[in-house]
């Protein structure tokens, strides 16, 4: 069964003083996310990622279209008991302690009273906040608030977790911990839908990604497939102080870095390049095919709109 089915979801806002102009925040979006997937929703700031998440959470109402989560309508309370949500740059009741906040959310999510205290303690430990359990949130740093946000999102053991820019504002260690947490959720069989504009995170974590820009879906693809596509080029790295002329004549784009040379050239010139190295007595370090990166896919999907914008 599909975890999330988005069927032509669309959101327009009326803007301006007289509210006569229409701003299209999300053009009709069709997307299906399978159960157990870690799905990355990529796009620059203002692309429509948060609007999509808010529509799925029932926080904003769609202009047209519909969405189903775990086979049910998004505003069905039974759905909400099975999903967790971390908003972008979350802000919580700062007069509460971390423990009180999680207890409150546990009550709202229907976690049985006898299990609640133990669950809260476990979640605080899982996000590394057990020592700050009784500290008011107004004394928390941004990174600590993000951890509380993650704890509240998974507190009630949801099947599906929505994370809006979960790595935003975190230091490298914090980002690593969030990545580990998402990996753990995947191992537990949860579906994770997260938005980000940090491509390395998406490449490391996601099964599939979608690229959105200007409220429009630009493309969807499996990360493994996207990153295994060959460019028809090879990368040759060898010891040397300069680029041999014979190698340059093969069409290699080369750069010297310390006592190593890194050259990229067409795949069909691979044998000729090796022959040049043998002839020049240069020691080969590696020869690898050049693969596509998620960044290539992302840039390629964003480009059409950018060039349209530039020509306008």
């Amino acid at each position: 069964m599909a975890a999330i089915e988005i069927l032509g979801l669309e959101k327009n806002y009326l803007v301006g003083f007289w509210r006569k102009r229409t701003k299209q925040a999300l053009r009709p979006l069709h997307l299906t996310i399978e159960e157990g997937e870690v799905f990355g929703f990529l796009g620059p700031n203002g692309a429509g990622k948060t609007t999509t998440l808010k529509l799925l959470m029932g926080l904003v109402l769609p202009t047209a279209g519909t969405a189903r989560i775990l086979g049910m309508e998004v505003d069905d309370p039974r759905v909400k008991a099975q999903i967790g949500f971390l908003p972008e740059q979350p802000y919580f009741y700062d007069y509460l302690t971390a423990q009180e906040l999680l207890e409150y959310y546990g009550q709202l999510s229907g976690v049985p009273a006898k299990e609640r205290a133990a669950r809260v303690e476990k979640m605080l430990a899982r996000v590394g906040l057990q020592d700050a359990a009784r500290v008011q949130l107004r004394k928390f740093s941004k990174g600590m608030l993000q951890r509380v946000g993650l704890a509240q999102a998974i507190l009630h053991d949801p099947k599906l977790v929505f994370l809006d820019e979960p790595m935003s504002g975190l230091d490298p260690m914090g980002r690593r911990e969030v990545r580990d947490l998402i990996q753990q959720l995947r191992q537990e069989g949860k579906t994770v839908f997260f938005s980000t504009h940090i491509l390395s995170d998406a490449e490391a974590l996601c099964d599939r990604v979608a690229v959105i820009n200007h409220g429009e879906l630009r493309g969807v693809g499996a990360v493994a497939e996207l990153t295994s596509r060959m460019h028809g080029k090879v990368e040759v790295i060898f010891y040397g102080q300069s680029v041999p002329a014979a190698l340059a004549s093969l069409g290699a784009e080369a750069r010297v870095s310390g006592d190593m040379v890194n050259a990229v050239l067409p795949e069909e010139q691979q044998e000729a390049a090796l022959e040049v190295l043998r002839r020049e007595h240069l020691k080969l370090i590696s020869l690898t095919p050049v693969r596509s990166s998620l960044e290539d896919f992302y840039i390629q999907k964003l480009q059409p709109a950018e060039s349209k914008g530039a020509s306008a």
């Binding site: 808010k54 926080l59 309370p77 919580f92 709202l108 999510s109 229907g110 509240q152």
Partner: peptide
């Protein structure tokens, strides 16, 4: 935006 994490629950 404290409401977001409340209304995304069965409330």
């Amino acid at each position: 935006r404290t409401l977001y994490t409340v209304l995304s629950r069965p409330v």
